[in-house]
Amino acid sequence: MLTKLYDWIDERLDITPLWRDIADHEVPEHVNPAHHFSAFVYCFGGLTFFVVVIQILSGMFLMMYYVPDVERAWESVYYLQNQVAYGQIVRGMHHWGASIVIVMMFLHTLRVFFQGAYKKPRELNWIVGVLIFFVMLGLGLTGYLLPWDMKAVFATKVTLEIAQSTPLIGDLLKTLLAGDEHIIGAQTLTRFFAIHVFFLPAALLVLIGLHFLMIRKQGISGPL
């Protein structure tokens, strides 16, 4: 049945070369933990992506209950965590995933760094990786404010003051981020929400696409 469906589509659109190109390729022996257990260090990049997928999925579902409004944000988070079935699980995934993704990304970076895998011809992929790192930090930072509890607000206050200490454009930057010159409030919350949910994920997907495109084009770096 499924085969027939696949053949029916393939006959019309010739999709086999498409997915073969993406998925059908050999894993070299030196990166396969089945051959050398120490090759598990090559898993961190993939694990980072895996957690990113979890973050996107759980985030999409959290948005079914969350409201980015100063009066209701905290209560909506409280409700979705404590009243909605599996709320603790879904919010827990997003909460812990946010930390784990940073850890995985850091380990991936360490592996690439200590194996020298960033060297020619893979410099561009290193640069894109660093950009991904910044986007991830931005996601963690903007997401931190959304529950709108005391910890979130004061952490954001600190962040905005750090932004404000930028030479020359500090004040502008702070106002641009916070939405108001003095207040961390309604406008800050909606801004951070938009950045967290649309702007940064869009940037992240583009960068990850480039990251994967380059690794497929150049192949994984050789054994040490």
Binding site: I183, G185, A186, Q187
Partner: peptide, 12 residues
């Protein structure tokens, strides 16, 4: 000395 006022934060 405490003092209160209506603070405008955008629409809020």
């Amino acid at each position: 000395v405490e003092f209160s006022f209506k603070q405008k934060d955008g629409w809020y």
